[in-house]
Design a binder for these strands. Sequence first.
DNA 1: CTATTAGCTAGAGTCGGCTCTAGATCAAGC
DNA 2: GCTTGATCTAGAGCCGACTCTAGCTAATAG
Lengths: 150, 150
Amino acid sequence: MDLSIGEVSKRSGLSVHALRFYEKEGLFANPIRRTPGGQRIYREEDLQWLASCARLRSSGMSLAAIRRYVELMRQGPGNEHERLALLHDHEKRVEAQIHELHECLDVIRYKVKAYAEYVARTQAGELRDPTPPDAEADCHRAAPAGPSTG
Amino acid sequence: MDLSIGEVSKRSGLSVHALRFYEKEGLFANPIRRTPGGQRIYREEDLQWLASCARLRSSGMSLAAIRRYVELMRQGPGNEHERLALLHDHEKRVEAQIHELHECLDVIRYKVKAYAEYVARTQAGELRDPTPPDAEADCHRAAPAGPSTG
DNA sequence: CTATTAGCTAGAGTCGGCTCTAGATCAAGC
DNA sequence: GCTTGATCTAGAGCCGACTCTAGCTAATAG
């Protein structure tokens, strides 16, 4: 039931340094108990919370925002609308992020396709002067004749 | 046709500091010319390249990777397979990123929904002891009775 | 009992990607 | 010519999120 910092580190993927840092920064929902000797005692719940944190973190929520959220939880019932607002804001940001990534992906795929075709062509036929991938405005070098796409 | 660093800053959204930094770091596809007095002269092409860079950056490509790509472009024809590999790797990373964000979004939406329902319930009926949003394992506080979901 | 391994604190260091400063120079309008 | 605002260079500083160090203590296996 009780876990040492080393075990939590293994199971959460966070370093022991990071775990101590998180505690110092007030990022745990519950206070972490200590042994008489001063060593941290974690519980399964803390691991679960860390898993939630990981999700928030990897979707780009800052530690500061997580701390804010934790503070609201610690204050207890009565501020649910604030927690909701915080989460809802983050939801919108994640959606925007996904949207932007899709746009980037379009651009990247376009380039990948052009290069893939070019490489396939040059390998297949060993043409003397293969047509460059495309005339994208990306690569503006004064490259004499070769594929100039960025 | 020719642009000062200030104009490029305005049109690219990058600060003049960042533009000088990018040049120092070798992130421009073409060398940036100078006036006799030493001031930078940009061209439309540079702006277009910056726009491409912005896409790569905002999809998480590091400046180091962009520099690598620029180096390949500057070497001219013959290394298209390397450029392809670099772009293809990045494509895969972006896809993975999107996938992860979707998973995070699921979690966030679940919480948002739970809180939204709770807030709606408490506002509508002013119940004395409304049912907490859910029994998510997120908030492990010893909160007496209120909604304990993180 | 002791050696080893794990954990403790406070605080310094790292890294990426800029941002800002200082002090000098350039360019344009009056 | 002079002022004003833009630009120049070299280099310091900053921010977030850790990571690492030093010097010490706790827990455990033999």
